[in-house]
């Protein structure tokens, strides 16, 4: 980086140098659409979240509601609109939790090194030696299904990956010349962390946040689909798929629509992260998976 010799100089924004592509515009619009809907949903939904509007269950598209009705005769469109809020909010909260734990511990391990690093790394390794879905199922089995348990469990499971990434970032950035310079100037650990390492790790961390957000949506909707996540009568896309699978054979698309919504959300997020990383450091989502 150009400002390596002068740590006081203002840094370029992480978004500098990004050029718009068609993929980015489309993916961004899809995300913006869902995000707006999550904010204003309840005001524009034609019916209530759990309101039964018709005695016909699994009405096809165009009958009953605009997008048909579900297994209890509730409006699919309204539940989709309420569902985007649940789905995105839960994913956002779990991702924030996993970042709060993962980044703090990861950077702490990279800066403090020594026994702290060894102990935390070993614990994280022990958790990662076990399939994450299985870990989540055991925890939910012990504590029961509630939103708090769900959010904390998925947050914990996701934080192991965040820890690994931020620890590696901390180690990489920590040996750069400008950090050495700051140490030589006699700056404290906190200053080095917040003013040197964090700003210079921002781009990879933003990309990681996007990836974890996608992963969190998949994980949460998977749990809801198994009946262990969000519980009725709340509307959640994963839960809606589970409720309405039976209607597939009656010509109803009440199960396919929420599944397609999840797919549109996660694919757009991945495309956007892909674009961001390509512009940033030439490393793409696929290359991350390749490792």
């Amino acid at each position: 980086m150009s400002d390596a010799t002068d740590p006081i100089a203002p840094r370029a924004s992480v978004f500098a140098g990004l050029r718009l592509t068609w993929t980015a515009i489309i993916a961004g619009s899809v995300l913006l659409f869902w995000f707006t809907l999550a904010l204003i949903g309840p005001w524009i939904a034609p019916h209530g979240e759990a309101e039964i509007i018709s005695s016909t269950t699994f009405a096809p598209i165009g009958e009953g509601g605009i997008l048909g009705t579900d297994k209890l005769g509730r409006d699919v469109l309204s539940r989709l609109i309420y569902g985007v809020r649940t789905t995105m909010l839960l994913a956002l909260v779990t991702t924030v939790i996993s970042f709060a734990c993962g980044v703090t511990l990861g950077f702490a391990a990279a800066i403090l090194k020594g026994w702290f690093d060894v102990i935390v790394s070993r614990i994280v390794e022990a958790f990662m030696a076990f399939p994450s879905t299985l870990l989540a199922l055991v925890i939910i089995g012990v504590f029961g299904t509630s939103i708090t348990v769900l959010v904390l469990t998925v947050g914990l499971v996701l934080s192991t990956g965040v820890f690994r990434v931020s620890r590696a970032l901390g180690y990489d950035v920590g040996v750069m010349d400008f950090v050495e310079a700051a140490r030589a100037r006699g700056e404290g650990t906190w200053w080095i962390l917040t003013r040197e390492i964090l700003p210079n790790s921002m781009a990879p961390l933003i990309a990681e946040f996007g990836l974890r957000f996608t992963f969190s949506i998949l994980f949460l909707s998977g749990l809801s689909f198994l009946g262990l996540g969000v519980q009725e009568p709340a509307a959640d896309w994963g839960l809606m798929v589970q409720e309405n699978v039976g209607g597939l054979f009656l010509g109803s698309s009440a199960a396919l629509l929420p599944a397609a919504c999840i797919a549109s959300l996660t694919i757009s997020m991945n495309l956007l992260v892909d674009w961001f990383q390509q512009r940033q450091q030439g490393e793409t989502v696929l290359e991350k998976i390749d490792q």
């Binding site: 996608t214 998949l218 998977g222 599944a259 996660t266 694919i267 997020m269 696929l286």
Partner: peptide, 12 residues
């Protein structure tokens, strides 16, 4: 194709 496949849930 793989990017899309990775992003969608298994039940989809």
């Amino acid at each position: 194709t793989t990017l899309a496949l990775i992003a969608v849930p298994e039940f989809f």
